[in-house]
């Protein structure tokens, strides 16, 4: 799994690990001894990617912020239990993934399909995403928005574990082995999960393809 999560960090963009493994180990050790400054420096290496992942999963900035906080508070409470046999990034993303899974499960019990409904007076979620192609004509923009909505609905129809595996594989670009380590499961189980997710998405989005 060496480098798997660094690859993840790289693909998820903009927050590359800027310190050596030795420096990271030193930060981890100091954080485990209760050094708050070291803990802050350590999580700053990953927190932007964590927030992005949370935002990708839940859609709402407020909920993403809550997940971010919940995840890092858990990390803070349990960092003493971290053993350096595993990579810190794997351990961290395991915590993050569990927090996201819990959130998705709670969400699934609340509603059948969690379409990110806009609040009254607020723009729709996808309208808040910066448009990188300002020259698009309105008709095409509407079409893109509709496709975005369909994708979101299709993703939300996956069960929480399928959703997380698919997010980590398809959108974050993690290797199956890394996902297996994060999920504490075998690579074969991840493959099966990914296959089921792909099948469901093929059914949901088949008419668009």
């Amino acid at each position: 799994m060496d480098g798997a999560c660094l690859e993840f960090a790289g693909k998820a963009s903009a927050q590359p690990s800027l310190i050596s493994e030795a420096d990271e180990r030193s930060l981890i050790r100091r954080a485990q001894e209760g050094d708050r400054v070291a803990f802050d420096r350590l999580i700053r290496l990953y927190d932007q990617n964590v927030l992005r992942l949370a935002l990708q999963v839940v859609g709402s900035p407020e909920e993403a912020r809550d997940l971010y906080q919940e995840a890092f508070l858990k990390v803070y409470r349990s960092i003493r239990n971290f053993r350096s046999e595993a990579k810190f990034s794997t351990w961290l993303y395991r915590v993050v993934m569990n927090v996201c899974l819990d959130h998705l499960r709670r969400q699934n019990t609340r509603k059948e399909v969690a379409v990110p409904a806009p609040q009254e007076g607020e723009p729709e979620f996808f309208q808040t995403v910066p448009e990188e192609r300002p020259t698009l004509d309105p008709e095409r923009a509407t079409h893109s928005k509709e496709i975005g909505r369909r994708i979101q609905v299709a993703l939300e129809r996956l069960n929480p574990r399928e959703r997380m595996v698919f997010e980590l594989k398809h959108y974050q670009g993690l290797k199956l082995r890394a996902i297996g380590e994060i999920c504490k499961t075998s690579e074969q189980t991840v493959k099966n999960c990914l296959f089921r997710a792909t099948q469901k998405l093929r059914m949901e989005l088949g008419d668009l393809a």
Partner: peptide, 25 residues
């Protein structure tokens, strides 16, 4: 299908949201 999925809008974390999340943390 992958091409369709690639049309999912990229979510960018704004500096304000990151700062807000760090402050709450």
């Amino acid at each position: 299908i992958h091409q369709v999925l690639a049309q999912r809008p990229q979510v960018e974390v704004s500096a304000a949201l990151l700062a807000e999340a760090r402050m709450a943390l």
